[in-house]
Structures are given as structure tokens and as C-alpha cells.
Design a protein around this nucleic acid. Structure first.
Length: 581
RNA sequence: GGCGCUGUAGCUCAGUUGGUUAGAGCGCCGCCCUGUCACGGCGGAGGUCGUGGGUUCGAGCCCCAUCAGCGUCGCCA
């Protein structure tokens, strides 16, 4: 008697005695004969209970999700009753002994059908949800991707080094999760937003090539592609150029896609930040389709249409998006599209329909034939298409046009599943203006090295300074970013200085790091990629919760454990923490 | 914090203009059935319409508030 799994048995096993353990997937009771589909992670095997064995009596009482052990003989199914849908469909197990290892209550949703149960229920009874094929598959893909990553970097002489979870907080960036210290009243650890400074210190420590599958935590609001707790592929290399990092990370992704999905990826195209913003209105373009944005202010110079006129006069921009087949929309549908645009942040939207019976527009009397013709020519629009126009301050106009481009792409079915369009975005600006304070802050983090030859801009024109920073983007999702770091202490101080930090502030916040730079820090750089997002896209999911075993809700709760929850008074006392009523 | 969507049987959903006893499929329970595989047949149980308030002769449906989930903007160096 050998123990086997439920997806393993084949016709060649016929005649052997085996033991199968698993869950009751489904029972088909014919009165004088009972079929049971037995399920484990490996698959499903049909068990047949015949009245000639005592197990039959127990089988009559089996229910979905009961856990059983079945012993019997593997046999070929009678001719004509094979099931081509099952890998084990040519055989069945004739049960001789049945042991009920554990009963199950009736589950709150059906485990054995692909029914979209309510997310509350799925998360509360996550163990049942995880039993279902979709989640079993996603967790398997996740494992294989992480395995492929570790293999890839191991083959290239990288060391995986763990970094602590209880670390020092940083005032900038995302909000930290804090952990009160019992031994140090009033002091707190922070949970890492990323192991950024630690991995740089590992370079200073001489490890040369580091990687880690690292858990990161950020106390910010959630999105479909953002969980408070997530996993990064963290990489750092010494004596490297930006080109070295791009090469190895791109190779890694190519390796994953080949090993896990059996897909050969082409080289990743590269695009500057400025290009991405003006062609797609975002720094994470979805390259599965074209429909690039087109600036159109000059077409409407001059115009009597006040919205356009004032936009142009105030230095704004009119940005056009092509909507293939959009001329077929009814006026009512265009109205709905305008509302949608407003939800996406547009002040308004002008549409031009290039219909078979002529040009129509929401601002008919201002749109002349030559406007439509010139736009159509410029954006390769055809008869039957529509053109959507957004007028606003330059950045805002491109941003909203970029969001509408995605909406158009979605409506036209251009975001094909199984189509993987990676790209690199490079030449990011070093600084951006903080909307609240009006002061310049690093667009990424202050350890990023400015672009070569642009150090002097610190004094002359800091906002024009670019960073040796790069993002990897896939199908409109930012997978991650990296940079070449500053390794000379005096240059690091110049950056802090530019950001208006006093020596005291530097010492309090980053003293340990700046000191480390003083002891022979090698040139280094690296990158971090969001593994959850990679797995999500590889699985064809549009939501991180589908690829994380125990995810949080949008309000950062765990519905299964019911976390967070109040702490006992004694625990709070020990932690020197007082909760305001 | 803003905006939007959702909440009706265990599950997925329908529920007309506000009007009699709130329905369907699946699941569940019972009986029957020896080749099914989403088995089949017969019968049955099961509802605080998320919660609280309001309008009305009358509310699942309209209004207000609130809770939960989802999406999104802000936020995420």
C-alpha cells in the first residue's frame, strides 16, 4: 500500500493498491454506487464506493470538505466513462477502506465551484478560499517566481542577506509603522519601508552583490496594487553602472518569464521620463497599445472658444487622445464619457467625432473642418474615430489625457491578457516641488546620485537636475525602481544641504549612514521590484489580494484574524503606551 | 480626507411606478436511484432586505446618517 497524491495516478498504476488522502470535493450518490471526487493540492481522483465493501456505509455520509483517507485498488475506468477533463480521468480508485479523518461544517461558500464569493467572506474564511484552484495556482506561481529569482541571483554570485525588521524610522517618505520599545520608554522602532540604507551599508561592508526577498511595510492608504505589507526583490551591487543594473534586472525578469511562463521576452525598450510624460501622460505607460497623446494647442491658435483660448494664453496645453471607433458613440454616451473624464480629474472634455456623415463635436461651432483634418492627420485618426481633447495646465492636461487613454484602451479591448510589455523609464528629475510647502524635495530618495555632469545644477538650476534613477514598468504598472547611489560623503552632504537639512538633522536622522560613507564606501547602485505586482501580472490578476495568501482589506484589516485589535491594558503598560479614549 | 459602486435566503443574484404572502439557480436537509463526473428524480427547510432614523395610509424600493467591502483621487521620499 503506497500513499499517493490525488493528481498522480495514471493508467500505468492500474492494479496497484494505494492510499489517498484529501478533501471531499464532490459526491455523486447513485444509491447503489457512490462516486467521490477526492481533492488535494495535486489534483482530483475519482473514488468509487461499491456496496460489497463496508466503506460504502460511511461513504453515504460523506459531505463536502470532509477529510478522508481511502485505501483501495487503482483500476481502469470502464470504457466510455473516462473523463478527459481530469489528468487522472482514465482511472479510478475502488475504495476498500475509508477512514474519516475529520468532518467539515458546511462551508460558507462553495469551495468546489468557481463562484465569485463576496470578498468579505473569502477573506474571513481565507483557508477555504485558498483551497480553491485559482488561489492554489496563484500561490504556486508565486513560489515558482520567487524560486526562479533566487536561482537566478545565486547563479550570478549574489548573496541573500537578511536585514532587520525593527529599525530606525525616517521622517521622509511613506508613513512608518511604529513598534513601541518596552526597554526604552517613549522610544519606537520603525518597520522598514524598504531595506534601502541597510543594503547600501552591506555594500560598504564589502559584500559586493546582495539580494533579498524582503518584506516591506508602509502605513499609507491601499489600492488594488498597493498593500501595506508587501514583498520586494531587493538588489544592490558594488562597482556598477546604471547599465549593469538594468542588464541584470532585465535578465532576471526574462529568466522568470522563461522558467515560469515559458515566454521569451524581447529586450525592454527604454524611454526617458520626459518622453513618457509627453507621450503617455504617466511615468508608467501601458505599452500594450499605442494611442499616444498629441499636444494640440497650436491647432487651436487662434480660437474663439474661450476654454481653449484662456488655457493657451495662460501657458496651458490642449492634449488630444484618439478613440478608435469613437465616432459611433451617441451623444448620451459622449456625455457619460465627459463625466468619466471629470471623475478622472478633467476640468472638462471636448470631443470631435469623425463620422461618415461629417465632423461632429461637443463644441460644434468652434471646431472648423481644418481643425479636425489637421488633428486627424497628426494623430493618424481615421474616419469613424473620435478625438478627445483636454485643456488644462500642462502637467494636468497630460495626466488626465493619459488616464483617458487607458480608459479608451480598456473600452477598445487593447489591454490584451498574456501580452507583456516591459519597459525602462530613465532620466527622472532629481527634485520635485512639494505641493504643500512649495519647497523642492527629492523625487525619490536623497541617496540617489544626480546624472553625470549635472552636479553643478545644484547651484544654478536644481529643478533641471536629473537623477541616475530608473523604473521598470510592465503594462502600466510600476514594478519597481532603482538608482545609482551617492558614495562620496561630501557629495551626500551637498545633497542634504541642498534639501535644507542642518548638520544636526542629518546627524539625528542619517548619522549612522553618513559615518559609514566615511570609511571607504564603494560606488554602488541597485534596484527593488515589487514581487506581489510581478506575480499579479504573471497570473493575469488585477488585484494584489489574489496573489497574497493573507492580504489586508482597503482599511488595512485582516478579516480572518480580526487584526488590528485592542491590546490588553497590561501590554500597553509595559510598552509605556497610553491610548487616548 | 474627497468622489463613485456594492450590501436582499448559507452562496451568487433578480425584485417593475412605493402596493397582496419578497423570488430564481446553486448549496443544505430527507427519500429514491449501480457508471456518474456541475449525476439525476421527488419533497422540504431556510429572509431583522447591512444597521439606525425619517417621509408615506403603505418602504427591499424614496431621503438622511452610519457600518462593511471594493474602485479611485489625495497620499505612497
Amino acid at each position: 500500500m503506497t500513499r499517493r497524491t490525488c493528481g498522480a495516478l495514471r493508467i500505468t498504476d492500474s492494479g496497484t493498491n494505494v492510499e489517498l488522502d484529501g478533501w471531499i470535493h464532490r459526491r455523486r450518490d447513485h444509491g447503489g454506487l457512490i462516486f467521490v471526487d477526492l481533492r488535494d493540492r495535486d489534483g482530483i481522483t475519482q473514488i468509487v464506493f461499491d456496496p460489497q465493501y463496508p466503506a460504502f456505509a460511511d461513504a453515504e455520509h460523506l459531505r463536502s470538505e470532509d477529510v478522508v483517507r481511502v485505501c483501495g485498488r487503482v483500476r481502469n475506468r470502464p470504457s466510455g466513462t473516462e473523463n478527459a477533463k481530469l489528468a487522472t480521468g482514465e482511472i479510478e480508485l475502488a475504495a476498500e477502506q475509508l477512514e474519516i479523518l475529520n468532518r467539515s461544517l458546511v462551508p460558507p461558500f462553495q469551495v468546489n465551484v468557481d463562484e465569485n464569493a463576496d470578498e468579505n467572506l473569502r477573506l474571513e474564511y481565507r483557508y477555504l478560499d485558498l483551497r480553491r484552484p485559482r488561489m492554489q495556482r496563484n500561490m504556486t506561481v508565486r513560489h515558482r517566481i520567487i524560486k526562479a529569482i533566487r536561482d537566478f541571483f545565486d547563479e550570478r554570485d549574489f548573496l541573500e542577506i537578511e536585514t532587520p525588521l525593527l529599525i530606525k524610522g525616517t521622517p521622509e517618505g511613506a508613513r512608518d509603522y511604529l513598534v513601541p520599545s518596552r526597554l526604552h520608554p517613549g522610544s519606537f522602532y520603525a518597520l522598514p519601508q524598504s531595506p534601502q540604507l541597510l543594503k547600501q551599508i552591506l555594500m560598504i561592508s564589502g559584500f559586493g552583490r546582495y539580494m533579498q526577498i524582503a518584506r516591506c511595510l508602509r502605513d499609507e492608504d491601499l489600492r488594488a496594487d498597493r498593500q501595506p505589507e508587501f514583498t520586494q526583490l531587493d538588489v544592490e551591487m558594488s562597482f556598477c553602472t546604471q547599465e549593469d543594473v538594468l542588464e541584470i534586472m532585465e535578465s532576471c525578469m526574462r529568466s522568470i518569464w522563461l522558467r515560469v511562463l515559458d515566454i521569451e521576452l524581447p529586450p525592454f525598450p527604454r524611454m526617458s521620463y520626459a518622453d513618457a510624460m509627453s507621450r503617455y501622460g504617466t511615468d508608467k505607460p501601458d505599452l500594450r497599445f499605442g494611442l499616444e497623446l498629441v499636444p494640440a494647442s497650436d491647432v487651436f491658435t487662434p480660437t474663439e472658444f474661450m476654454v481653449f483660448k484662456s488655457t493657451i494664453e495662460s501657458g496651458g496645453e490642449i492634449v488630444a487622445v484618439r478613440y478608435p471607433g469613437g465616432a459611433a458613440l451617441s451623444r448620451r454616451e459622449f456625455d457619460a464619457l465627459v463625466e468619466e473624464a471629470k471623475l478622472l480629474g478633467a476640468k472638462g472634455m471636448v470631443w470631435i467625432a469623425l463620422g461618415a456623415d461629417g465632423v461632429k463635436s461637443s463644441v460644434q461651432r468652434f471646431i472648423e473642418e481644418r481643425h479636425a483634418n489637421e488633428l486627424a492627420l497628426r494623430m493618424q485618426a481615421e474616419r469613424g474615430d473620435a478625438i478627445l481633447l483636454f485643456a488644462d495646465a500642462r502637467d494636468a492636461a497630460f495626466a488626465v489625457a493619459g488616464r483617458m487613454r487607458l480608459e479608451v484602451g480598456r473600452r477598445c479591448g487593447l489591454q490584451r491578457e498574456g501580452d507583456f510589455r516591459f519597459c525602462w523609464i530613465t532620466e527622472f528629475p532629481y527634485l520635485e516641488i512639494n505641493a504643500e510647502t512649495g519647497k523642492p524635495i527629492p523625487a525619490h530618495h536623497p541617496f540617489t546620485s544626480p546624472a553625470e555632469g549635472e552636479w553643478d545644477l545644484i547651484e544654478s538650476d536644481p529643478l533641471r537636475m536629473r537623477a541616475q534613477h530608473y523604473d521598470m514598468v510592465l503594462n502600466g504598472y510600476e514594478l519597481g525602481s532603482g538608482s545609482i547611489r551617492i558614495h562620496q560623503p561630501e557629495l551626500q552632504r551637498r545633497i542634504f544641504d541642498m534639501l535644507g537639512m542642518t548638520p544636526e538633522q542629518i546627524d539625528a536622522e542619517f548619522g549612522f549612514f553618513v559615518r559609514a560613507l566615511d570609511y571607504g564606501a564603494p560606488p554602488h547602485g541597485g534596484m527593488a521590484l515589487g514581487i506581489d505586482r510581478i506575480v499579479m501580472l504573471a497570473c493575469g490578476e488585477d488585484n494584489l489580494r489574489e496573489v497574497i495568501a493573507f492580504p489586508k482589506t482597503q482599511t488595512a484589516r485582516d478579516l480572518m484574524m480580526d487584526a488590528p485589535s485592542p491590546a490588553p491594558a497590561e501590554a500597553l503598560r509595559e510598552l509605556h503606551v497610553q491610548v487616548k479614549p
